[in-house]
Structures are given as C-alpha cells and as structure tokens.
Amino acid sequence: MASGTTEDKLSACCLTEYRPLPGTPRGQIIKFAGVDTYFIEGNDQKSKGKVIVLLTDVFGLVKNPRIIADEVSQKTGMDVYVPDLFNGDALPSSFLKDAPDVPGEKKSFGLKLNFMGKLLTKVGPWMIRHRQGVTLPIVERFFKALRAERNASRIQSVGYCFGGLYTLLAGGPLHLADAIVGCHVSLMNKTHFEQLQVPAAFACAQEDDYFSDSFRTEAQQILARKSDIPSKFVLCDGTVHGFASRPNPDNPTIMAAFKQANDLIAEWATTHL
C-alpha cells in the first residue's frame, strides 16, 4: 500500500465540478487498494477503527464528495474515505445542467431532447464500461483492504445514486459493511433490500425517477419485516434526485435537505458503528 498527496488532483477537482459546494477540501489523495482515494482523518481518538466510506455517483471524485467527506468526518470524528471507482473515467457533472433542480420543474422540448441524446450516446456506453462485473471487485477489494491494512473494525458505507447499489450490496451477503446509508439510491431492486443484513438508513428525494414513491414504500415494508435490523427512511421535501451530492448552493431548501442527509449519515454512524 502506497500513499501520498496529489495536490494537482485536489485543485483540478474544483475546476471540473458543476455548481460546486463552497469551501476547500482539507484531506488528501492517497493510493489505496489500487485506486486513487480521498482521505480525511478523524479527530476523535475514541473512534479509531470506525470508518466511513462514501461511494460516489457517476460524477466521481470531484470537489463535492470531498467537501461532504470533510463535513461527515467533522460531525463524527471518524476517518472518511472516498475511492475513485472509475479510475478517472467519471461522467462530467456538467451533465446536470439539463436536469430538473426542484420537484415539478418543466424543461423545454429542446432540453429534454438534448438530455435524452446524452443518455444514449454517453451514459449508455459508460454504464457498460463500469458495469457491476467491473465495479464490484473494486468495492470488495477496497473494503477488505480497510480491515486488513487500516485495522478498520467497523465500517459504514454511504452510497449516492450509482454508489447506492454497491452500498446495498456491501450491507448484504457480501458482509463488507456494518451499517449503510443510501442517498437517492439507484440501480437497485427489491432483492437488494430483502438481502440487507445491517442497519440501513436512506435519505430520499421528494421526486426521484430512480427511487419512486411506490418503490420506496415497498422497500420500507421489506425492511419493516426485518425487526432485528434497524432501518430509517427520511423524505426530504423540495428535492429531486441528486440533492445530497449535487445540491444547488443558492437554494436554501435544497441546502437544508443536503444538511439533513449529512446529519443522517453522522447519526447512523455514531449510533451503529
């Protein structure tokens, strides 16, 4: 295991982020388990051995997940890691320029057509390159290395959108995580909830095509039947998919929901790790 800072990557992340969160990342980029990883060390000695891992959305290891990692570490006192699951091949977050920002927002036909074009020409091939058969081994290797090389005794996995699937898998039969939090998760099905074996919390958007009201209700019912496993669903008003990782800093309602998601992550970690 080699480690070291890469200052140019810390600087470059701020240039490529669409509508970045305020602040400057305080952590460092290390090479861990074979991937570039953002790492922020916790300040609570009593929490050593307790680790939080953020699994990002399709936009990867740019500025926002680093700022989130810093905030979560400050709230919990724990070490936080954000691995680059895509080896530098993340989608540009500028893709969000054509996406709705608030519930019920209508887009022109031209913008909708442009968005659909991006889905077909960019997202489809990207999803093939980063299919489960490629990404899951990276996730498994990373979590196992945390226990073997960083003496992590308890791990909470936090997944955003794309990373939500792998957080659910980490909390299931793979036995990689001891607790999980999903933020506007996607790509999953009811089997992933049925197979959960650890305390699980979810920060959900008011309007989310990837985790609909009916699906969320079904997921809640599945976990409610698991009486021995704590679960919690928080529905954040005034939000759409992406609010917990790519909020609009100029919208107070969305930023309040963003804080609510970070508070949930911290609460779940301090309670279940």
Rank of each mutant, 00 (worst) to 15 (best):
A2P: 14
G4L: 11
T5Y: 01
T6S: 08
K9A: 12
K9I: 13
C14L: 12
C14M: 06
L15N: 10
T16Q: 14
R19E: 13
L21N: 02
P22Q: 00
T24M: 05
P25Q: 00
Q28M: 13
I29D: 09
I29R: 08
I29C: 14
K31M: 15
F32Q: 05
F32P: 11
V35F: 03
D36T: 09
T37G: 14
F39P: 06
I40W: 02
E41Q: 13
N43E: 14
V53G: 08
D57L: 02
V58P: 14
V58C: 09
L61Q: 02
V62C: 12
V62D: 07
K63A: 09
P65M: 07
T76H: 00
G77L: 05
G77S: 02
M78T: 00
V82M: 08
P83N: 11
P83E: 06
L85N: 11
P92Q: 07
P92D: 03
P92Y: 10
P92W: 05
P100A: 10
D101S: 11
P103A: 00
K107Y: 02
K107M: 03
K107N: 02
F109M: 11
L111M: 08
L111T: 12
K112D: 14
L113V: 13
F115W: 11
L119T: 08
T121C: 12
G124S: 07
M127Q: 09
R129P: 07
T135F: 07
I138M: 07
A145I: 04
E149W: 09
R150V: 04
N151Y: 01
R154N: 08
I155Q: 01
G159W: 10
Y160F: 15
T167F: 06
A170P: 03
G171Q: 01
G172H: 12
P173K: 06
L174M: 13
A177Y: 05
A179W: 02
I180M: 05
V181F: 00
G182V: 03
G182C: 10
V185N: 12
L187K: 03
M188S: 15
M188F: 13
K190I: 07
E194S: 13
E194L: 14
Q195P: 02
Q195C: 05
Q195S: 04
L196Y: 01
V198G: 03
F202I: 14
C204Y: 06
C204K: 00
C204T: 03
D209L: 09
Y210P: 03
F211K: 01
T217D: 15
E218T: 15
A224V: 11
S227M: 07
S227F: 01
S227H: 04
P230N: 00
S231L: 01
K232T: 15
V234W: 05
L235Q: 09
T239K: 05
H241G: 01
H241W: 03
F243Q: 06
A244Q: 00
P249L: 00
D250A: 11
M255G: 01
M255C: 02
A256H: 14
L264Q: 05
I265Y: 05
T270D: 01
